[in-house]
Design a protein around this nucleic acid. Sequence first.
RNA 1: GCUGCGGUGGUCUAGAGGUUAUGACGGUGGGUUGUGGUCCCGCCAACCCGGGUUCAAUUCCCGGCCGCGGCCCCA
Length: 434
Amino acid sequence: MFERARGTRDFGPAEMGRRLAFERMCDEVAFRYGFQRVATPTFERLELFTAKSGASITDQLYAFKDRSDRDLTLRPELTAPVMRMIAEQKGQIPKPARYSYFGPCFRYEESKRGRYREFWQYGCEIIGAPTSLTEAEVVAFACAIVEEAGLEGWQLNIGHVGILNDILGNLGLEGDALGDAMRLLDKGDFAGLAASGIDSTAVTNLQSLAQLNGGIETLASAREIITSMGVESEALDQLEEMLNNLSSLGANPPTLVVDLTVARGLDYYTGMVFEIMVDELGGEGQVCGGGSYKLFHLFGLDDLDPCCGFGLGFDRVLLALEIQAEKSGRSEVVPGENSGASTLAVIPFKVDVSQVLALVSGLRAGGQPVLLELRERNIGKSMAWANSTGAQFAMVVGPRDIESGQVTIKRLSDGAEANCEMSAEAISQTISSM
RNA sequence: GCUGCGGUGGUCUAGAGGUUAUGACGGUGGGUUGUGGUCCCGCCAACCCGGGUUCAAUUCCCGGCCGCGGCCCCA
């Protein structure tokens, strides 16, 4: 026997229906926010990702050589490919561009629940509009997705790398030391910060900054602390503006935490950074992350920096929704996942099927989903089959019906029946009126 | 990378050093050649893999693989 490769999953009809419903929902929200869907290849030149994230990521990639000895890799994320796509057009696109995307990504790492070697990301980027309003739009879009998906109890964490840069820069940190300090801050490792040689008063101040917990109102306290450290931060004003815009745009997270020590551990973030967390997934609780970043300098298009975007952990959101639905007894995990058109199971019975197929064809042409019984079996078994398919209606077409020109439509949920003329129009009409 | 727990038909599960390896769900066929979901009967289908201990291992031991949790990491 052959087993699935580790960290991969199969999706049967029920699960796939749910995933498609969620993808459609994401696209609908994206459309309302003015995003246009784009797609990039599943594999790319290896250099694209090493340039973005350093050579050390190679061991987490599904990298390989092609027959011409080119270094390629399955994509581990979608931001760099989208940047590459725009760069290939020399940035000659209408700006600002609002792109959304969805697709599988691949990372070679230990798999566990909520972390797979093949996983799906839904995401977006706004390119060519480096403003705090852009940031607000991006975060509002992310919030809209999780909210419309019906996720409960999620938390939005927002920080600003620019503010951290101002503070740490004022302490004389730069280059690697600054990056290290930022990573320590992100982890909340203040002992490590003190050990790295940062002035103890500054560490204390950073710690109280990290302990601020709340929404926009915490900015005032943050400003006090930052001012007391002798730092003028324009970035702080930008963050305040962004948060106000976010609120005006209707984002309404169950919990909002303005946490200036959120750094997302990534070198290329430059401004606002954010993440959306849920409790249900333990250590894999981050379902979305993003912010403002500079990457176009890698392609020689510095003028497009910074951009703003996010990646949404498609699988994780679904997992969290499934756990929450289970807990609350909700039957629908993704809103609308069960609301398909009413399918009609057509059961030819003791007739030459060619007599039925024209009718089936007419029904389908008219937009009526038809599931055709393909085996010749007795009525009882065929009805059981119709029921097991999930079809809402069933119709037997036998000699009697052919002769009379009348058929009986049966609603499978409760056995209700209705008769009508044996024509596609009459049948469709009968179904929609039942 | 570290660490804890687990692995019996497709799914859930009983079980014991020697069994025709349990039951349910499911699938399939019949009872029933014009109306399903009930009921009855039949059939399909499993001890994760490799090594060790033993007369005998699916059961005990070790390793691997896979799954689940925790830590590290998470572009």
